[in-house]
Write a protein that binds this DNA or RNA. Structure first.
Lengths: 200, 200
DNA sequence: CATCAACGAGAACATTTTGAGAACAATATG
DNA sequence: CATATTGTTCTCAAAATGTTCTCGTTGATG
């Protein structure tokens, strides 16, 4: 039994709510939490989650949801997003405006890899940074891509075609390093850079 | 039964997506991932992969693809064991190894602000980046801080004391801009930079 | 040139998933 | 008990997604 996207969203909401408040949410609260207006629909989701074994329902009881399993899909990964800095107000004044969720922020089809090496420092990507990559098998000239060479070596470089598409150039953003040129058949694109994270 | 190049591409996409996200992609996502626009074509590929025995389809269900075989690339090339990118493994081999959780990654007492302006470009912080800040009322010389001046203006600068603690210097990381010096009582620290996010 | 297989676009249809809300039952509360 | 709140079960409709087509293009091959 697999969950639908919305069922996962509901499960995640229930887990967060329960963790924060110590009691399970009401159906109305679940509905509002996922942006709908119908308690009936919320109930249908909760029922589906019970059928899938993620929780149990104390029938009829208010706030009668008990969680059983960990949610294997979604992880809690949001940060509160405050207003723009340098815009003139104390941070407290604009707190709680929004939040950042990694998946929402960078897009759904993304994953993260840790970058090793200095081949992209001129693009502002440093050793140890986390690169956020969107799944794609194709790229446009100028994209920064994760390229797999000979099914062996994965590398992060700027992508460009040459020789009427027969060759692929992988261009480091570092004046000390040289462009690598391969037969197109030796290179497989695994994704395109869409963001990055850095921790100090 | 041999797969065509495109079928292999689709299989690779499905494998990586599933490894990283825990659920299979939708046909639309597959189409976008390989650079085409037609769900129908994506379906034809998935069907071919089912016929070839690589996966099974839960007919009609959304995200109803189940992978059956191991990734052929992993099996055919026994790969070196380094996890980081540029160090030698296809993404599907390391997916899931290094999941990023924003709160775990940056710490609990953190929030995010969008950076406006170029005062920190030499520190690699650009206009439009998201700065991740840890709540603190104190800072050490050299920290990059969110400082509130006269309870009015919040700004992101490098922090330093001077004059036996009577003054606070807020130093931009931009050679075109000048250090600002304030009486310590006019400056309140709101937090210290611990990370950043960028979206391309 | 004729044929064929692989491919991409997109229309048309089928099925699943979703949302609203009514009606009623059970529970909570004073 | 009386009332309000909450949970449960329905029906109907819409949206999203999967499925099956046709059509045209391209490149390889005989």
């Amino acid at each position: 039994m697999t969950l639908t996207d919305n069922q996962r969203t509901v499960l995640s909401f229930i887990q967060r709510y329960t963790a924060a408040r110590g009691v399970s949410p009401k159906l109305q609260e679940i509905a509002e939490g996922i942006g709908i207006s119908s308690r009936g629909v919320a109930h249908r989701y909760v029922q589906a989650l019970e059928d899938a074994g993620f929780l149990s329902i104390d029938k009829g009881k208010h706030r009668g949801i008990r969680l059983l399993k960990e949610n294997p899909y979604q992880r809690e990964n949001s940060l509160p997003l405050l207003g723009k800095i340098a815009a003139g107000k104390p941070i407290e004044a604009i707190a709680g405006e929004d939040e950042i969720n990694l998946v929402d922020f960078f897009g759904k089809n993304t994953f993260a890899v840790r970058v090793q090496g200095d081949s992209m420092i001129d693009a502002g990507i440093f050793d140890g940074d986390i690169a956020v990559i969107e799944f794609r098998e194709t790229a446009s000239d100028g994209d920064i891509v994760v390229a797999l060479i000979d099914e062996q070596e994965a590398t992060l470089k700027r992508f460009s075609r040459s020789g009427q598409g027969r060759f692929i150039e992988l261009i480091p953003e570092n004046t000390d390093m040289e462009t690598m040129i391969y037969d197109a058949c030796r290179v497989r694109i695994q994704g395109v850079l869409v963001g990055q994270l850095r921790k100090y």
